[in-house]
Amino acid sequence: MSRRPALAALLLALCLAAGGCGAQEAPAPAEPQTPSQEELAMTTCTLSVGDQTYSVTLADTEAARALAARLPLTLSMTELNGNEKYANLDQALPTAATQPGEIHTGDLMLYGADCLVLFYGDFTTAYSYTPLGRLADPTGLAAALGTGGVTVTLTAN
């Protein structure tokens, strides 16, 4: 019996055990990327109503990024149900609606594809919304919005 087939089989086994013949070393993991100032600025925006301003932390959604790209935006918002103000946008935003179950004061949501909703009361809901963001501190929001229609401005930071 020749030793050549046994030697070839041994080399093949070593080659396969090492990750295959001609296998290259796996690349080093990529360094974590630090967000640019522009990216950081787009994670928040400012909501102004009357003389009050609120910082809004934008959601990590395609809809929130699309909204941020349209800022500044001044909206005439209409009262609804004693817990929310809404405004119809002139262009639809991308949607990824989910049923949150609970709404909290300061939630900024998209109803359908073109209805921006700002909530100033906590309640449970069966409706579906696409998250846009949340006020960092909604203290005094209900008073600032009042009981009727109101003008609200969203600006980039």
Rank of each mutant, 00 (worst) to 15 (best):
R3W: 13
R3N: 07
R4H: 06
P5C: 03
A6C: 07
L7G: 04
L7K: 10
A8I: 10
A9E: 12
L10E: 09
L12H: 09
G20E: 11
Q24Y: 05
A28C: 07
Q33W: 11
Q33N: 09
Q33R: 15
P35M: 00
C45S: 12
C45I: 08
L47D: 00
L47T: 00
L47H: 01
L47V: 01
D51V: 13
D51I: 11
Y54Q: 05
T57D: 09
L58K: 03
A63G: 00
A64E: 04
A64W: 04
A64Q: 05
R65H: 07
R65M: 07
A69P: 09
R70P: 00
R70C: 01
L71E: 08
L71G: 10
L71W: 14
P72L: 00
S76N: 10
M77F: 02
E79R: 14
N81K: 06
N81G: 15
N83C: 12
K85L: 02
K85I: 01
Y86V: 09
A87T: 13
N88P: 07
N88I: 11
L89R: 02
L89D: 02
P94E: 03
T95I: 06
A96I: 03
A96D: 15
T98S: 13
Q99A: 15
P100M: 00
E102S: 13
I103V: 15
T105I: 13
L110A: 07
G112P: 04
D114R: 01
D114A: 01
L116G: 03
L116P: 04
V117T: 09
V117W: 04
F119N: 07
Y120P: 04
G121M: 06
D122R: 09
D122Q: 11
T125A: 03
T125C: 02
A126V: 13
S128K: 10
Y129Q: 02
G133M: 05
G133E: 05
A136V: 14
T139H: 08
G140Y: 12
G140K: 12
G140I: 12
G140N: 11
L141P: 08
A142H: 01
A143G: 15
A144F: 06
L145A: 04
L145V: 13
G146V: 11
T147F: 03
G149S: 13
V152G: 10
V152D: 09
V152M: 08
L154K: 07
